[in-house]
Design a protein around this nucleic acid. Structure first.
Lengths: 184, 184
DNA sequence: GATGAAGCGGAAATTCCGCTTCCGCAAGAT
DNA sequence: ATCTTGCGGAAGCGGAATTTCCGCTTCATC
C-alpha cells in the first residue's frame, strides 16, 4: 500500500470520528471528506460504502473506549486482599468523572450515534464496554460516593443520554447538575 | 368555513402537536396526516406547505406553555405584602415539577424541536415564556428549595436539553437525577 | 331531496439531497 | 522514464419527502 494512501486512510478515520461525534450520525460523506481534506472519491476508495465506514468507525471508537475504561478499572487482582469495596484502581467517582471528560471529548458519543444507524459492532465488545462502565459505577457505590438507589445499568443509560449528544461539553450545566444528582 | 373543515383543521393541529412531540421535527407530512385521520391533500388544503404547519404548531405550543406557566406563577400582586420571597402562588419547587410533567407530556418538547427547524415564532412570545420559567426558578431559589449556584437562565437551558427530547418521560432516570441535582 | 360549492383522499409528479460512480489527471514506485 | 496506484470532484442515481391535481364525497341551502 502506498504511503500517501495509508496516510489518507488514517485522516479519513480521524475525520469521521470527529465529525460523527460533533454532528451526529447524519453527517454526510461529503462533509467527512471535506474535514479529512480529501475528495469523496478517495473516501470511497478506502471504504466501499457508508456502512463500511460506519462499522470501521464504530469498532475503532469502541476499542478506544474499552482501552480507556480499562485504565480506570482496578487491576485483575487474583485475590482481592484489601478492604471490601476497594479494588485498588482509581477511586470510583474520579473514574466516572474521567469517563465523562473522555466521552464528551472523544468518540463515545459515536456509540449510540453509530449504533442507532445499525452499524454492526461485535456484540461481545459492546457488552464488554457496558460491563466496564457498570463495574466502575458499582465500585463508586461500594465506596459510598455514588448514589446506590440507581442501578449501574441506569447510570450507563444516563451517561448515554447526557453525554452522547452532538456537541456535548463537560461543563454543560446539564452535566454538572447530573453529576451532582448522582453523588451521595 | 364548513363545519367539517374546521374540525379537520383542529384534528390536524392536534395530531401535529402530538406527532412532533413524540417523533421529533423530522416527522413527515404523511405521518401527521395519518395520525389526524385525514389525507395529505386535506393537510395541504389547510397549510400551504410544511413551514406553515410548523409555524402554526410552534405558536400554538408556545401559547399553551405560556398559559400553563401563568397558572403556576404568583398573581401580579401590586404590593407584595407577605414575607420576602413568598409570591403567593404555587411553591416554586412544586411549580418546577409540574412544569416538567407538563413539558414531557404536552408540547414544550416542540419548542426546541420546532425552533431548530427555523419556524419563526414571535421573539417576544419566546422571551415571555423564558421569563416565566426563569421567574419560577428564581422563586424556588428564594424559597430555598432550588440550588442557588445555578442561574435561572441555566435552569431554563437544563430543562431545554433534559426535557425537550423526543420520547422523554417524567420518570426517566435522567430527569429524576437532574431534579435531585437541582434540589437543595 | 336536488343542486352547487366546498372539501376530501390519495395516487402521481416533483423536488431535494446524500450516496456512489467514473474518468482524466497527479504523484509515488521501480 | 514509465508504469501503476491513487486522487479529485463533477455528474448521475435513487429514494424519501413534499407538493400537486382531480374525480368523488359531504355539507349547506332552497
Amino acid at each position: 500500500m502506498r504511503a500517501d494512501a495509508r496516510r489518507n486512510r488514517e485522516r479519513i478515520v480521524e475525520a469521521a470520528l470527529r465529525t460523527f461525534a460533533e454532528r451526529g450520525p447524519a453527517a454526510s460523506m461529503e462533509e467527512i471528506a471535506q474535514v479529512a481534506g480529501v475528495g469523496v472519491g478517495t473516501l470511497y476508495r478506502h471504504f466501499p460504502d457508508r456502512r463500511a465506514l460506519l462499522e470501521e468507525i464504530a469498532s475503532e471508537a469502541l476499542e478506544r473506549l474499552i482501552a480507556f475504561a480499562r485504565t480506570l478499572a482496578p487491576p485483575p487482582a487474583a485475590h482481592d486482599s484489601g478492604a471490601p469495596g476497594d479494588g485498588g484502581g482509581t477511586p470510583g467517582w474520579d473514574a466516572l468523572l474521567r469517563l465523562v471528560d473522555y466521552s464528551v471529548a472523544q468518540p463515545y458519543a459515536l456509540l449510540k450515534t453509530v449504533g442507532e444507524e445499525a452499524a454492526a459492532v461485535p456484540p461481545d465488545r459492546l457488552r464488554e464496554a457496558d460491563a466496564l462502565i457498570a463495574g466502575i459505577a458499582e465500585r463508586a457505590q461500594k465506596e459510598g460516593t455514588l448514589r446506590s438507589d440507581v442501578t449501574p445499568a441506569e447510570v450507563v443509560a444516563i451517561f448515554g443520554t447526557a453525554v452522547c449528544r452532538p456537541g456535548a461539553r463537560a461543563d454543560d450545566p446539564l452535566i454538572r447538575v447530573m453529576l451532582d444528582g448522582l453523588r451521595v
